[in-house]
Amino acid sequence: MSIFNGENVFTDFVEKIGKATQVILKDLRDLTLLVGDITKTSWYVIKHPSKLRWRDVGYYMDLCGSQALPIVIMICFLMGLILAFQAAVQARKFGGEIFVADAVGFSILKELGPLMVAMIATGRAGSAFAAEIGTMKVNEEISALETMGFSPCRFLVIPKVVSMLIAMPVLTVFGDVSGLFGGFVVGVTMLDLPGMAYYTRTIAVLYPSTMALGLIKSVVFGLLIAIVGCLRGFQSESDAQGVGRSTTSSVVTSIFLIVIADSVLTMLYTFLGY
């Protein structure tokens, strides 16, 4: 077929770039509109707090927060374990076993805790948001909301954003603690450090601000996950496969944006001297 025809390969290539650009521009436009809508509605909700769907906030806090707790604790504990193990192998070479506490402490609090929690939340919450809104679109529920004079943003987006903003830092605190504990377990068993020494070292090198930096990250990630999940839901085509595709793409986009945001924040922190 045309694959062997040099000219067509080139035009195909240009066409693909053009199409991709169109998609990106459309995404950006939709994103801008959604963020604008969220800003406007948030302001309205701040002025009229009774207009927030508190019951939905509770539901999503449960879904994205408490139900995710066991997996967050387990994954972060294992991350701490793995991290300490790798650090221990290196630290042993020059007899600096105690610095494992530093390595684990900083990596978990500033980086891996928020990141792991964000990945779990993307898989759990982000995909659920996209699927939920996509299905509502298929069932004409979104249209019904609009013609009842309700703002879909206030009903569907704001509760998700609010619950993510609350749930993410809380989950991250739990993740941080279990990560540190994972490091502690390796320190005490594999490196034969006295438990008290590991504990004291950890407390000595970490400041509350170290954890705060990670928590700020987690809040940003939570916002991204909620917005991307909702955006993909609203963009979903009105059929079952469309909902499936939008769910997938919400996860992929969220992970991509989270990694970008993480890099930016890390650079910013370094630049500001933290």
Binding site: M136, N139, E140, E141, S143, A144, G149
Partner: peptide
């Protein structure tokens, strides 16, 4: 538009009830 919309009622072909 929202003000106008809430003054009339609409039913959809599939019901469009809120599933939750």
């Amino acid at each position: 538009k929202r003000e106008l919309m809430r003054q009339f009622g609409v039913t959809y072909q599939g019901g469009a009830l809120f599933g939750s």
